[in-house]
């Protein structure tokens, strides 16, 4: 690199000639992400009301899916909760959400879009474009700890599997068990909410920059690989709206959990059509 004797002045925190409300975007990001983290943590600690079976429904909160350990009547994968290996000295009660939430959380934490957003909103690095910063030192993502963000591709694969599981949950939400034990196909508001959740999370996950690289971005020539070129085109199309997918899916996954909780507690009645 060329040695530079630039003698540039250091500008202080917030120093800028910008006239617009540059602080508004990072503030909104800070508030929305903080609210999401607080709500997710609260929902994970609850350990109850994550499965709504009123009227034979099959609505499972996305914060608890896949449900590895659950109660009788719930669609658990492995066994009854709490599992025998769960430490008795654990300071908090067992919640199946603890076992799976790290997957989607790490996907968002290492996501290229969110990284830029929360570096600005939470770390003020920078607070906004062309606005002075509070710190003089800077290591970026070049050294520990932020060099670990390069693990993003390894959290993409589990996150993609989660989307498939959530899509399966949405399909299951079309099955309504009757009092005589038979199952009828139907569509409830919960079915629509869960299906939209899987769709939006799919749009976010399969449009990530890591998926774009893996599907064909690492190649310089795709012309002789038409299927791969088509896939790369599709992922690139999703990727162009990655920010939009990220925020809508974040909002919707929380709303889905809220909806399932409200139905599970009989606070609202799920409207549905059975065929």
């Amino acid at each position: 690199m060329s040695q530079a004797d630039l003698r540039l002045p250091q500008r202080g925190m917030g120093a800028t000639s910008r006239r617009d409300a540059w602080w508004l975007e990072p503030l909104i990001v800070f508030l929305v992400l903080s609210a999401f983290i607080v709500y997710t943590t609260w929902a994970a600690f609850q350990g109850v009301n994550y499965f709504a079976s009123q009227g034979g429904a099959h609505y499972l909160s996305p914060f608890y899916s896949p449900l590895l350990y659950g109660q009788n009547g719930e669609p658990y994968w492995i066994g009854l909760a709490p599992p025998s290996w769960w430490p008795a000295w654990s300071p908090f009660a067992f919640s199946p959400a603890f076992l799976i939430l790290a997957g989607p959380a790490l996907m968002r934490f290492t996501c290229y879009y969110y990284r830029g957003a929360y570096y600005k909103a939470f770390w003020l690095d920078p607070p906004s474009c062309a606005v002075g910063e509070p710190r003089k030192s800077y290591i970026g993502e070049r050294r520990f700890p932020l060099i670990m963000q390069n693990v993003h591709r390894y959290v993409f694969y589990p996150a993609a599997a989660f989307v498939i599981v959530l899509a399966w949950d949405a399909i299951q939400a079309t099955r309504f068990v009757q009092e005589d034990g038979t199952t009828r196909f139907g569509i409830g508001l919960g079915t629509v909410v869960l299906a939209l959740n899987a769709f939006l999370l799919g749009g976010y996950t399969f449009g990530c920059h890591c998926a774009r690289h893996q599907i064909g971005g690492y190649l310089n020539s795709l012309a002789r690989r038409p299927i791969r070129a088509k896939c790369y085109g599709c992922v690139s199309a999703l990727n162009r709206r990655h920010m939009t997918w990220a925020w809508i899916s974040l909002f919707w996954v929380a709303l889905t959990d809220v909806y399932v909780r409200l139905v599970a507690q009989d606070i609202i009645t799920d409207p549905r059509i059975l065929f």
Binding site: M1, G116, K120, P126, C129, A130, I139, G140, R142, R143
Partner: peptide, 13 residues
């Protein structure tokens, strides 16, 4: 190494 792409923290500015 020389051009330090790791310094970029993707602010999109």
């Amino acid at each position: 190494d020389e051009n330090g792409i790791g310094y970029c923290n993707i602010t999109r500015c």
